[in-house]
């Protein structure tokens, strides 16, 4: 990225197929505009988001990672979102203890009917990451 260009954060999103991914589709069918800074990877369940995926994205240079799942009680697989919640809490703690910025990892519950909430989340996250500036993890870990 050249220094002249304004900083545009890159967000990798891991979304569950049943709620948040469908919510993102609804944002589309409703033509709700949001910043083009997010790139979505579709998984079946937020409970299958391996912390490795999140770390890999951050270490590769993503400026933020969004994990989206069903609201508590709504998981298509009964309890995957609770598993995700515990895992992400632990992951953020580890990231923090490693001296890195855990606020670059967002976990949000967004249902299939919350297209607006998905768009708002991406807008808020883009703003928050713009304020933080580029992810320094990439440089720190680069050989």
């Amino acid at each position: 990225m050249s220094n002249q260009e304004p900083f545009e954060p890159r967000i990798v999103a891991f979304l569950c197929n049943w709620c948040t991914y469908t919510g993102a589709d609804l944002a589309g069918t409703s033509r709700i505009q949001y910043p083009p800074n997010v790139r979505i990877i579709r998984l079946m369940c937020s409970g299958s988001v391996d912390p490795t995926y999140v770390l890999k994205a951050l270490l590769d240079g993503a400026d933020g990672v969004l994990i989206g799942g069903c609201h508590p009680g709504d998981c298509h697989y009964q309890s995957g979102n609770y598993k995700a919640r515990r895992r992400i809490v632990a992951l953020k703690e580890i990231v923090k203890q490693a001296g890195l910025d855990e606020d670059r990892i967002w976990l949000r519950w967004i249902s299939a009917s919350e297209g607006q909430r998905f768009a708002d989340t991406v807008s808020q996250m883009t703003e928050a990451l713009r304020a933080k500036g580029p992810n320094p993890m990439r440089q720190e870990w680069a050989v």
């Binding site: 990798v12 790139r39 995926y53 590769d60 993503a62």
Partner: peptide
Amino acid sequence: FTPVQILAQVDALV
């Protein structure tokens, strides 16, 4: 949805 497949997606995106 194997780790190899997902991590390849991450690499391609970032």
